[in-house]
């Protein structure tokens, strides 16, 4: 860890980062609406899509607003994790584009009887061989585990094709025992604590 893995990362200005306050209420967010793959991005958070104008015409009936008391959408997840600091730069995961809004998906309960939703976050490491991908992933998972209600299952994965050992790292991050043991590791936790300092 002595050598900096990526000494010259691409940094986005904060004005380019997704936020809940677009320039005007009718303007779509920069990270959506202009890309080639917009049609492929699922309408995550459908009943409470932050980009859907809250006008009566858009929501066919009013009941959905009353039914779900505490909606959590992709933007909220983004806000929770984009402020995590990169372990080797004093920069946020949002500004380094490690965390990207279109790569956050909320999957609703698999059956009407279940209340369990899944938050899926795909991370894009700054360089394909970044040895810190696991630590970053762990930071994201721990941050979400602490901040989200327990009805959320958290799947943090490395975006396929963005890292030499993406599958391997993703698997580790999905293993509950490994994550539980990592959280008990003092060295690792000191590192995570530093990364999470920027969060609220």
């Amino acid at each position: 860890m002595d050598d900096i893995q990526n000494s010259n990362p691409t940094v986005l200005p904060s004005s380019d980062l997704p936020s809940r306050r677009p320039a005007s209420p009718t303007t779509h967010h920069p990270s959506r609406g202009t890309g080639l793959f917009d049609s492929l991005v699922p309408a995550y958070g459908y009943p409470y899509d932050p980009f859907l104008p809250k006008s009566p015409s858009a929501s066919s009936d009013d009941e959905d607003d009353d039914e779900i008391p505490d909606p959590i959408d992709a933007q909220e997840i983004y806000d929770l994790i984009s402020t995590i600091t990169d372990p080797e730069h004093p920069l946020s995961l949002g500004s380094l584009s490690v965390v990207n809004l279109p790569d956050i998906t909320i999957i609703p309960p698999s059956s009407p009887a279940s209340r369990i939703s899944t938050v899926q976050v795909l991370l894009t490491p700054t360089v394909t061989h970044c040895g810190l991908a696991t630590v970053i992933g762990l930071g994201v998972r721990v941050r979400l585990e602490r901040a989200l209600p327990p009805r959320f299952r958290i799947d943090v994965r490395i975006k396929p094709g963005t890292h030499s050992t993406a599958e391997q790292v993703s698997r580790q991050l999905g293993d509950k025992e490994r994550v539980a043991a990592a959280v008990e590791n003092a060295t690792l936790m000191a590192m995570l604590k530093k990364m999470l300092e920027g969060c609220d």
Partner: peptide, 25 residues
């Protein structure tokens, strides 16, 4: 809330392919 209503709402607001995957359970 009425699960049926909630479910119905979800169904209609998903692209059809995604809905098929999600509800093929």
């Amino acid at each position: 809330p009425s699960a049926a209503t909630e479910n119905h709402f979800r169904r209609s607001s998903y692209p059809s392919i995604l809905a098929d995957i999600l509800y093929a359970h």
